[in-house]
């Protein structure tokens, strides 16, 4: 995550940041982000996916600018898999994984890369796999089968502020995710057919589980499921407005700034990652982490949290607007795809 800098470079960056109006290498003010680009639905085989980049000069020229302009780029994809349910749980799980492309960290050895991956995975896992964020509609057959949500992210390029980018990509991918609608299937022995005078001979319908009274009395009857409709993409994940975004405050004593480049990251002693969600406009703190060798005192943290909430709210509103736009585009895209396929 850190580029090796010489002592003079570190001193130069620090003294610039601490000068009377704080100056940064690219002329931004401390609270400015680099341009952020979000795109959802980029992986056709995933249930939900997103690409987020920070600081790419132009999205249209993204390919051309590779290597030249730099910028952080993360791709996140959600894949739902059918999974059995243990005895005690109600089933379903959220599993996160982060991989770092070696091209993003050419200076790291492969064990160091593994360390970084597992660090980021643990941050992501501890936040997103938390029971309070667990979407209820992952259950397929209660007590038997549920969707296991696998969230895989790849860091393609790192030009600083990778965690903010990562969390934004995760949130975008999870919002983009559609859970296929299913109905339960029940098998009955042919011999018993006369005993149970039921219209639906061996199929009982019910979205996401049994709904008829008969099945609730005999839960063991439902053993399998089928997809309700091949054309239907399914419904969105529940609790979609409680996946958090992350804001990283880079702290140099007496000041802090946002969206550090990798040079700035290696020149500062302390970073504070704060994860906020705003379901219904109400701020919820989902996690907080400090990284770096420096120290900070409690009174300072309180002020920083206030600020972080403000920044996170800005980021949240921006991301929400963009995701709503992407969603509108998505339904148009899906319609085109549908008609195109039917014509064939």
């Amino acid at each position: 995550m850190t580029t090796a800098l010489s002592k003079v470079e570190i001193a130069y960056i620090r003294s610039s940041l601490l000068s009377a109006p704080p100056l940064r290498a690219d002329g931004r003010s401390p609270e400015d982000f680099r341009p952020i680009a979000v795109e959802t639905g980029i992986a056709p085989l995933a249930n939900g996916s997103a690409r987020v980049s920070i600081g790419k000069p132009h999205t249209s020229r993204e390919k051309e600018a590779e290597g030249a302009g730099g910028g952080t780029e993360v791709v996140a994809a959600v894949k739902l898999e059918v999974d059995g349910v243990g005895e005690d749980k109600e089933g379903g799980k959220v599993v996160c994984n982060v991989s770092c492309s070696p091209a993003a960290y050419p200076h790291l050895s492969s064990p160091a890369l593994d360390d970084l991956q597992s660090d980021l995975t643990s941050v992501l896992g501890s936040v997103l796999s938390h029971p309070s964020l667990y979407p209820k509609n992952l259950v397929i057959v209660p007590g038997q089968k549920a969707w296991a949500l696998r969230l895989d992210t790849i860091i393609f390029a790192d030009a600083g502020n990778v965690l903010d980018c990562l969390m934004m990509a995760c949130r975008a991918a999870l919002v983009d995710t559609r859970v296929p609608s299913t109905r339960s299937v029940e098998y009955r022995a042919p011999g018993k057919r006369n005993e149970v005078p039921d219209d639906t001979m061996d199929v009982d319908e019910g979205r996401n589980g049994p709904s008829s009274l008969l099945e609730t009395r005999e839960p063991s009857g439902v053993v399998d499921f089928e997809l309700a409709d091949y054309w239907d993409e399914g419904g969105v994940l529940e609790a979609r407005d409680s996946w958090p975004v992350c804001v990283t405050l880079n702290m140099l004593p007496t000041m802090h700034f946002l969206d550090a480049t990798s040079q700035e990251e290696s020149a500062i002693p302390l970073r504070l990652h704060v994860l906020f969600a705003f379901p219904g406009g109400k701020p919820t703190l989902h996690g907080m982490r400090m990284a770096g060798a420096g120290t900070s005192d409690l009174s300072q943290i309180r002020v920083l949290l206030k600020n972080a909430e403000k920044y996170a709210r800005n980021m949240w509103t921006g991301l929400e607007a963009k995701l709503a736009e992407e969603e509108a585009r998505r339904s148009i895209k899906a319609r085109e795809k549908f008609y195109g396929r039917r014509r064939r």
Partner: peptide, 25 residues
């Protein structure tokens, strides 16, 4: 140790760096 670099020079340095980045992009 860095020498004393005053504000206008720092601004000029960051401006020139940005020019180089944009040209490279």
């Amino acid at each position: 140790q860095n020498d004393e670099v005053d504000g206008p020079t720092r601004i000029a340095i960051s401006r020139v760096s940005s020019i180089i980045r944009v040209l490279a992009d």
